[in-house]
Every structure is written in structure tokens, then in C-alpha cells.
Write a protein that binds this DNA or RNA. Structure first.
Length: 428
RNA sequence: UGGGGUGUAGCUCAACUGGCAGAGCGCCUGGCUGUUAACCAGGAGGUUGCAGGUUCGAGCCCUGCCGCCCCAGCCA
């Protein structure tokens, strides 16, 4: 048994390959079968006069996604998908696949999502998910090389997070528990232990969002760095994003081609990225005809307008305090704002990073928790971090699906996670 | 939660002004020695999302409900 990706080493040899039938075509006394084994595609060719009746009739009974073994001689052939062809001498049906639902044609999204467990097998989905895997690996590699220690943060928590109204609640031995909507507060705790840390995992938001940029369960990487200020934080972010994009271009060329991604915009992604303050963004928007006023958060329309003429990712930093989370550090030069940044990417993909310097002053942090009406008792341990050797630190969260959607040119982030969880979808 | 759209065969969609329920794909049968979502001929396949209403007659019009899609808000 050989893998299809190794076939170039077996030209002229007789080999056996096992895989799933993607398609069959019969043409009188010649028949073709395209088989996928998870490492590549192979076209098998069957000639009526060169095989016995039993083998020929097996071919006739093959349907899409039947598991088969093919034995025959390997040949190079430009006409074959994958570039290699097998002249079949023996064909065995291992497991049948009657009435496979997904045809090689257009389907509606709802139908495909109902069959997500099967849709994963198909070319565009394979390509997107492989890019995702490469993005994830490049995240680990980049951070590891820079001395970050991975910290796995809890998924079950008390009411710790940013907005209590968007937490999924579950029973915890008679008490209430919530699914984590960020690991950030926990990586902050690990910062004094390892200086540079990150968490990587699923996160949950019970927001009733129905857009192509939202899931209720999505994956996020959250680096946190002791002694980094907001400017260093942005430098880390632009290096990080540039590395991830370069790795995808380098190692996923085939996948991006299948996805028909024009990569010219991605080739430009190199540090430094342009930066504008929130206040400058508001001025720019007003000059462009928007009636946004200082203090309002930037919505999707505003973000789209800011990115319309830009080719590189853009940092928008130092937002009004009221528009941002309680843990962000007050800007000493303008106390109306906090030291934070959003990274917006071009081509309509919007925000992929939210980051900030954290409030390290115990008194101000306590005051902010009270202002937001958060349950103080849940934050006792978090405040301890300011009580025992408080230190300046910064970090950010990068959304995996949004990043992969941008890199692949995907229309909706639901296709860039194996099993999307959305407001109206918990199956399969 | 608002605004817009949509629901017809397993799938993707047609069906004029309200007048016999259609096609392609997939499936089944047959034909074809180089196909690339092959092609050709034939066949099976329907409670038009659900409930009511108007009408001689409703897939089409009206009311309510349900599902889904897109946009916005929220955010990554």
C-alpha cells in the first residue's frame, strides 16, 4: 500500500493504493476512476479487454465515496488529475457508499452545513482547513521561537470575562459555570511566572450574531508579554501577522490556488503596518462624509470606509475608554482614552486583532470594575496580580477563523472551522 | 433584536397576468476505447415549508407561524 503523494517514486512499478472514489466515468471499453486517499488524487484507468469480467463489473458498481483498493502500474500522465495514473490490473470494493448526498455540483450552504461531516472531504474544504492547520502551526512556531510559554487556560469559569450577558451558562454540580469567552485574565496571571506566555484554544460567545464574521465557538490565540507597552505590543502583532501570512504563502500555494485566492495583496503584508489613532480615524471618516462623533465605537461601515483605500493592515489605537473593556490601561496623555489597538485587514475582512496594555494600577482597576458594575468578588484573584508586584504588560487576541478567512479569501468564516457553531447550528 | 430576501423532485433551479407540476444533475437500464462536473437514448422520482383565507380554479394573491440566507448591532 502506498500513499498517492509518494507515487512519483514508483513510476513503472505496480503498486496498490487505497482510497475513496471521487468520480467515475465510463467510455465504452475504457473507464476512469478518480480516487482520493487523503494525500492526493489519482486517476485509475481500466481497459475492458485487459481485465476480467468481475473487475469490470466492480467498476460499474462504484459510486461516489466508495472505498476501494486499486492495483496497477504507475504512469505519468498530464491528463490525469494529480499528474499520475494507474493502469488498473486489480480493483477491490472495500466499503460501499450508496446514495452519497453531495454531488460534484453547486449546493446551497444550508444543505452543505447539514452534511458538514461529509463536506470536509471535498476539495475547497480540504484546502481551507489545511491553510487553517498551517496558520495554527505557524502561530505555535513563531511564539515558541520567541520564547513564549504556552499556557492552557480553563474553559469552565466563574463569571470571568468581558460582558456577562454574552456568556454561555451551564450547570456545575448545582452551581453556575460559564464557558470562557477569553483566556486573557488567566495568561496575565501566568506572566510573572514565564514573562512571555500565550493561550490557544476555543472561546465562546453567546452573542446572537448572524454575520459572516461571527461564530458562537471560535478559536483565538492570546499572547501576553510582561514589561511590553502598547507600542511594543503593536510591533509584536505586525511581526506575528507578517510571519503567519508569509508561511501560508510559502507552504500553502497549492491550496490557495484551489481556492482561487489572488495572493498579490498578501505579498504586501510586511512590517511596519500603518497606525492611526482613534481620534485621527474619526477625523478621516468625517472628512469622508461620515457623521460619526468622537466617542462612538467604530462599526463595520466605519471600518470598511477606513480600509477602502488601504492595501496593508491598519492599526487603530487608543480608543475612548467607554468603548473598551475594563482592564485596558488609561492613556496618561489623554485620560479619555485607553492604550489599545485593533488591527483591521483589507479586502473587507475587518478586525482580526484586539489588543491593549493592561491596567496595572490596583486602585484604577478596582474603580473600573465598579464602574462597569462587574461582580467584584469574582475578580479578587485578578486584583491580586496588581497587589503582588504589579508590572506593566500588554497582550492581544487574534481570531483564527477571521485570519484564515482573510488569507484564503473565504466568504464566510464558518467554512474555515471543521464544525462551525452558530446561533442556529449545533449539528453535526 | 431590527431591515431586506427566500422556501417547488435527493440536489440546483424554472413555471407568463391566478389556468394540465417542469428541466438539469444524481440514481436505474442500454450505447460509446482517453474521459476531466464526459456524451447520447430511455426510466423511476412531487402533501410546491406549515395552518387558515380569497377564487370556478392558488406554486403564484391575502393573514399568521416556522426554517434559512444577506445586512446591521455585538465582537475576534
Amino acid at each position: 500500500m502506498v500513499e498517492i503523494r509518494e507515487l512519483s517514486e514508483y513510476i513503472g512499478d505496480s503498486v496498490t493504493v487505497q482510497g475513496w472514489v471521487e468520480q467515475t466515468r465510463t467510455h465504452g471499453k475504457v473507464a476512469f476512476t478518480v480516487v482520493r486517499d487523503g494525500t492526493g488524487l489519482l486517476q485509475g484507468v481500466l481497459v475492458r479487454t485487459q481485465v476480467d469480467d468481475a473487475t469490470w463489473s466492480i467498476h460499474g458498481s462504484l459510486t461516489q465515496e466508495t472505498l476501494v483498493t486499486l492495483t496497477g502500474e504507475v504512469k505519468e500522465d498530464a491528463r490525469a488529475p494529480g499528474g499520475y495514473e494507474l493502469s488498473i490490473t486489480d480493483l477491490k470494493l472495500i466499503a460501499p457508499a450508496p446514495d452519497y448526498p453531495i454531488q460534484p455540483k453547486e449546493h446551497g450552504v444550508d444543505f452543505l452545513l447539514d452534511h458538514r461531516h461529509l463536506w470536509l472531504r471535498h476539495a475547497t474544504q480540504r484546502a481551507g482547513l489545511r491553510v487553517r492547520a498551517e496558520v495554527e502551526q505557524s502561530i505555535h512556531d513563531f511564539l515558541y521561537e520567541r520564547g513564549f510559554v504556552r499556557i492552557d487556560t480553563p474553559i469552565l469559569t466563574g463569571a470571568i470575562g468581558e460582558h456577562a450577558g454574552t456568556l454561555f451558562e451551564t450547570d456545575y454540580f448545582g452551581d453556575r459555570a460559564f464557558l470562557a469567552q477569553t483566556g486573557q485574565l488567566y495568561v496575565e496571571a501566568a506572566c510573572p511566572a514565564f514573562r512571555k506566555v500565550y493561550c490557544f484554544g476555543p472561546t465562546f460567545r453567546a452573542e446572537k450574531s448572524k454575520t459572516r464574521r461571527h461564530l458562537t465557538e471560535f478559536w483565538m490565540v492570546e499572547p501576553e508579554v510582561a514589561f511590553a507597552d502598547s507600542l511594543e505590543n503593536m510591533r509584536l502583532q505586525e511581526d506575528f501577522i507578517s510571519y503567519i501570512v508569509a508561511r501560508s504563502l510559502d507552504r500553502c500555494g497549492e491550496e490557495l490556488k484551489i481556492l482561487e485566492r489572488d495572493t498579490s495583496a498578501l505579498e504586501l503584508v510586511k512590517p511596519p503596518f500603518p497606525r492611526i489613532s482613534y481620534s485621527e480615524a474619526v477625523e478621516e471618516l468625517r472628512a469622508g462624509g461620515s457623521d460619526i462623533v468622537w466617542g462612538q465605537d467604530l462599526g463595520a461601515t466605519a471600518e470598511m470606509a477606513l480600509m477602502a483605500e488601504r492595501e496593508l493592515p491598519l492599526f487603530v489605537h487608543d480608543y475612548p475608554k467607554k468603548a473598551k473593556a475594563f482592564y485596558m490601561k488609561e492613556n496618561p496623555e489623554d485620560p479619555r482614552t485607553v492604550l489599545c489597538d485593533d488591527l483591521l485587514v483589507p479586502e473587507g475582512y475587518g478586525e482580526i486583532i484586539g489588543g491593549s496594555q493592561r491596567e496595572d494600577d490596583l486602585g484604577r482597576l478596582q474603580a473600573r470594575i465598579r464602574e462597569e458594575g462587574l461582580p467584584e468578588e469574582a475578580y479578587v484573584w485578578y486584583l491580586d496580580l496588581r497587589k503582588y508586584g504589579s508590572f506593566p504588560h500588554s497582550g492581544f487576541g487574534l481570531g483564527i477563523e477571521r485570519t484564515v478567512a482573510w488569507i484564503t479569501g473565504g466568504h464566510h468564516i464558518r467554512e474555515l472551522i471543521p464544525f462551525p457553531r452558530m446561533m442556529n447550528r449545533l449539528y453535526p
